[in-house]
Design a binder for these strands. Structure first.
Lengths: 193, 193
DNA sequence: CGCCAGTTATTGACGCATCAAGTTCGAGAA
DNA sequence: TTCTCGAACTTGATGCGTCAATAACTGGCG
């Protein structure tokens, strides 16, 4: 059986035997009940939140959450312009994804691309007036959604914790470019049910 | 300048005239610096974490994070079986999405569907032996990833905070009945026949 | 000078998600 | 009985994301 799943939903038997009774708790394989609860709670943030924000953005502003991010980031530059690769980094997207999205936004007239002369293949994306108006119109709804779904329901201490957690996750994901040793150790025997 | 961006970093005000604040004259509050930091940190959890987990699942176990969830949930049922709609609820997915995914998993021989006789159109999904083996093989890697990217880098107090935050988000998203046009999806588990 | 190597960006194919129908069945109303 | 409604799924079209090429340049090397 698998793991992280859940099973407690119904309060029935506490799966994963002994794992949480280990005092030292240095059991690297499975999750104890506190960890499991945290992981399940995390799913709400990881899965439901983006879905909710996306749905709402779509409904209220006819654009994707990601499209909004792109336009928004551009709108914050002094000249409403940014190089594609920088924009990709800023929005945590692959250059490929960004290129597709920017292509669509360009077709909609919300931004324009232009090659930077004498600089390899570098390209700038610039927000148009129409694009700017669209972001400005969408912004209040976006902020409202962020507040409603997340910020406003957190106490100050949890707001602070969220900052630390985000930072930790970011660090954990970005450290280690490639660890050859781990691939081999990834598998461990599974106890039978 | 658009929204969540920054701008008030320093408590300064949102440039951008009230083009849309007309709603009840209560201008939507912007985010102050603490809130903004929390929101940005949250992006790591909302965007980078799922991407990292998905990539790793794909690489190590040739399956999607979501596919793993489906198989995993089934594997925890006493008879490795669950009704489609219940499975959809359990995995926070639409019935449509689940149907597509289950169709693929069935084609791969990892599970099987069967109509429940005399019960409307109800359908059960059951894990096959092969499916069970696959989940068991994938589980350790999954747990390792969850630990590595999230759990292990959190102090106990943040682990607890994460639980509260997840619960808060979940509550915030699921309240709000208001909204014409869409009323489905608020759901409670379905009792077995 | 000509070429190779390294960046930076675009493209196309393909998989997966979503949305709007469509299908199938049971149950209660007429 | 027959109608209609609603629940539980499935299906197909469409659009976005990803991965693996490919393209467009610049600069350095020989």
């Amino acid at each position: 059986m698998a793991k992280t799943g859940d099973a407690q939903q119904r309060g029935e038997r506490p799966r994963q035997a002994g794992s949480q009774s280990r005092a030292s708790d240095v059991e690297p394989r499975w999750l104890n009940s506190d960890e499991l609860a945290a992981w399940l709670a995390n799913s709400a943030i990881m899965i439901s939140l983006p879905a909710a924000l996306d749905a709402r953005m779509q409904r209220e502003s006819q654009m994707t959450f990601f499209e909004y991010m792109v336009l928004s980031v551009l709108s914050e530059e002094p000249d409403r312009t940014m190089q594609m690769s920088a924009l990709a980094t800023r929005t945590s997207a692959s250059l490929s994804r960004l290129s597709h999205v920017v292509g669509r936004l360009e077709k909609r007239g919300l931004l324009a691309r232009s090659r930077i002369p004498g600089a390899g293949r570098r390209t700038n994306a610039t927000l148009t007036e129409a694009g700017y108006d669209v972001v400005v119109a969408a912004a209040p709804g976006h902020v409202a959604a962020v507040r409603e779904y997340l910020i406003d329901s957190l106490e100050p201490r949890d707001l602070a914790a969220l900052r630390r957690i985000g930072a930790a996750v970011d660090a954990a994901i970005h450290r280690e470019p490639a660890d050859p040793a781990r691939a081999a150790t990834a598998h461990v025997d599974v106890p039978a049910p």
